[in-house]
Simulated scan of single mutants.
Amino acid sequence: MSKFIVVSKYSFPLDAHIAKASLESEGIPAHIADEHTVNMQWLYSDAIGGVRLYVPEEFEIEAKAILALNFSADVDSVFEATPEHCPKCNGLDLINYTKGKKPAFIVFILLGFPLFFYQHGRKCKDCGWFKEM
């Protein structure tokens, strides 16, 4: 029986499952740990080290090489991605952003459960513009 080792850590279980599927499609057995803990209490993800992806020790190098592959350019070329501009300042530095995350975290720490609704959207890092999605 071989020893299992951590080859990658993720903040969200979905990302870990995508990585696991990539490894298994190449014939590398993989196991995910702590996904249920993170699903139940997402605020604990960073505290416990995230969702961990394990593989047998003999597959470590090959697994890390597969996980390091970046297919972003291939996806962009298929969809011909064009850069998104901020409508307020015409900047290109837009990020995915969750509005209300910090207050919800503070209320969660004090009361044990979040009371706020979140707003997911895009935010301009240059001028602060936010658009809910």
Rank of each mutant, 00 (worst) to 15 (best):
S72D: 13
L67E: 03
F105Q: 08
V78Q: 14
D76W: 04
I109N: 13
K102E: 15
T98Q: 13
N96W: 02
E84M: 01
N70A: 03
N96P: 10
G100Q: 03
G91Q: 08
A81L: 01
F113R: 15
T82A: 06
K99Y: 12
A81R: 09
P83N: 04
L94Q: 07
A104R: 15
D76A: 05
F79H: 14
T98M: 10
A65T: 14
F105W: 08
A63E: 03
I61G: 14
C86H: 03
L111M: 11
C89V: 00
V107Y: 13
H85T: 01
N90L: 00
G100E: 04
C89N: 02
D76K: 12
L67G: 12
V78W: 07
N96H: 08
I66Q: 08
D74C: 13
N90K: 14
K99F: 06
T82L: 02
P103S: 12
E80Y: 04
E60M: 13
S77L: 00
P114S: 12
F105K: 13
V78I: 02
I106D: 11
L111C: 07
P103V: 06
E62Q: 14
G91I: 01
I61H: 15
D93N: 08
C89T: 01
G91F: 03
S72Q: 12
E60L: 02
I95Q: 07
G91A: 04
G100N: 14
T82G: 05
F105G: 09
K101L: 13
A63F: 00
L110P: 14
L110W: 09
T82W: 01
F71E: 13
